[in-house]
């Protein structure tokens, strides 16, 4: 379980997040929605350990990960992240990217190669092992980023608007793929988006941020029948 307790973050005096408390259980997909600039990316970066909050704390599976005093480095948090711009490494081929991540938890070279093939297979990129990111299409890059994030076998996965730049057909495919993977991996996922279709397709629960404040945090079906505020109604298109 990821537990955020009273998270506050300021950039140069301007409040980006304030008093945000949230929980994500293993196996659950929490969609975080909000207009742009509402602090969604900042929230993910705090969970991953790239920013430290000015107030509040983060704990992951009972371990204190972030508080204003101390901070667990990102690589010891059992977390993976898919960045908004993917951040694929331009100087590595698809298989090299996976190999670099896999080295963290596997020693034997043969084992790693087998796992690379399996991961590429799970995102339908078997034939693309030797391609560099710039030789892939948008959807293929997205899938490679997915495979790279899964390679670490994370307990939790953070996704920052992962499908926002894709066409509707590729988007449908990828939503299916995420659900397939989730049915096996059972990770806790924080899924940032402002697209209501993705929320309908994927989310178990929905949290809504408005200018750094958490205004709603409900099960999806509850929120769909009773949005409770104008912002939620407009974001979810109900």
């Amino acid at each position: 379980m990821i537990v955020l307790d009273g998270i506050g973050k300021r950039f140069g005096g301007k409040e980006s997040l304030s008093g945000v408390s949230l929980q994500v259980a293993p196996g659950e997909i929490l969609a975080v929605m909000g207009p742009s600039g509402s602090g969604k990316t900042t929230l993910l970066r705090i969970v991953a350990g790239f920013e430290s909050p000015d107030e509040g704390s983060v704990s992951i599976d009972g371990v204190e990960a972030t508080s204003p005093e101390k901070s667990l480095p990102p690589h010891s948090r059992k977390i993976s992240m898919i960045f908004q711009d993917l951040a694929l490494w331009p100087h590595m081929t698809a298989s090299e990217q996976l190999r670099f991540v896999l080295k963290k938890r596997m020693k034997s070279g043969q084992e790693i190669e087998v796992e690379i093939a399996a991961l590429l297979g799970s995102v339908n990129l078997h034939d693309y092992a030797r391609r560099y990111p710039h030789q892939l299409s948008g959807g293929e890059r997205q899938r490679l980023a997915m495979a790279r994030a899964l390679a670490a076998k994370p307990a939790y996965l953070l996704m920052d608007e992962p499908l926002s730049s894709l066409d509707p057909i590729v988007k449908d495919e990828l939503e299916k793929m995420i659900l397939d993977i989730q049915s096996v991996a059972r990770m806790g996922i924080i899924y940032v988006t402002h697209n209501s279709d993705e929320v309908h397709a994927l989310a178990d629960r929905v949290a809504i941020l408005d200018r750094g404040r958490l205004v709603r945090d409900e099960r999806k079906d509850v929120l769909l029948t009773d949005p409770g505020c104008e912002l939620a109604r407009r974001l979810l298109r109900v």
Binding site: A48, P74, M81, F83, A87, W89, F100, K103
Partner: peptide, 14 residues
Amino acid sequence: IDRNMEEASLLHHG
């Protein structure tokens, strides 16, 4: 360098 590229690695390595 896009900092995210380094951060994508910091998720898994020191």
